[in-house]
Design a protein around this nucleic acid. Structure first.
Lengths: 130, 130
DNA sequence: GTAATCCTTGACGTGGGCGTCAAGGCCAGT
DNA sequence: ACTGGCCTTGACGCCCACGTCAAGGATTAC
């Protein structure tokens, strides 16, 4: 199949596929007229890449998964290198989530404090109903 | 005071201050020789901006706080517009955190599943001690 | 033949918040 | 006078995963 069909099957664009190829992630065979040619294996590789991208993995982080598939393993995460990426990503996510949670608490506290200081803001009926 | 001193006092760089000025966020008076001149009020404005930036607010989101301070209010979040930014940020943070948590769960599940499928990976002594 | 639809490479644009020169002006100390 | 350290504006670089032309070649449908 050609680049347009592969892009459509994976829900992405031709530009994206050419970009992946430029990064050495998804090289393509060429037919006589110079068009890129892909097969079903490429569909699986691309699906693996897209899944990880949707998870927020960087392109380079998908490389071990792609190479794992390409070397004949049944799944992209059948190789130790892929598992390492999983583990590092989990650590990153945990760190990021706890950092964001801390910010969330601080901003929430600021909001509560500021609302209490603003006249006629937060909870007027407490005094009005007295 | 001049730009270098203000930058140092706020723990940032002159480049950053010029950038803020270019965005209309922190305009500066000029002395006779063309040097930027700042006062203590500017220190407070800059501290407000830096605090919010450290929280992950975009520059534009700090503008209401700066304008609030500049219009004479005691704090940058003494104005309704600032509170709105707080609230929107909280919503953003909550959405982002829950999204990241969902990803974390999915990646964690994938890791567990993949580890179980890899030979000699996860918990060898269960069989070895039998 | 020709229009439509694919494909090719190349190259610049995007966003956010700056970093990092480059070329030069102003001022203090010696 | 000269050195060193501050300041000025202007402009390009960075990161990342592409989007978006532009100019042209290949193929298919009619």
């Amino acid at each position: 199949m050609r680049i347009g069909e592969l892009a459509e099957r994976a829900g992405t664009t031709t530009r994206t596929l050419r970009y992946y190829e430029s990064r050495g992630l998804l090289p393509a065979r060429r037919s006589g007229n110079g068009y890129r040619t892909y097969d079903e294996d490429d569909v699986r590789l691309l699906e693996q890449i897209r899944t990880l991208q949707d998870f927020g993995f960087e392109l380079e982080e998908t490389r071990p998964f792609v190479e794992c598939l390409r070397s004949g393993h049944p799944a992209g995460d059948s190789c130790p290198a892929s598992l390492d990426v999983y583990r590092r990503k989990l650590a990153e996510l945990d760190a990021l989530i706890s950092e964001l949670s801390a910010v969330r608490e601080q901003v929430g506290a600021q909001l509560v404090r500021a609302e209490a200081a603003v006249p006629g803001g937060p909870d007027p009926q407490c005094e009005l109903t007295g």
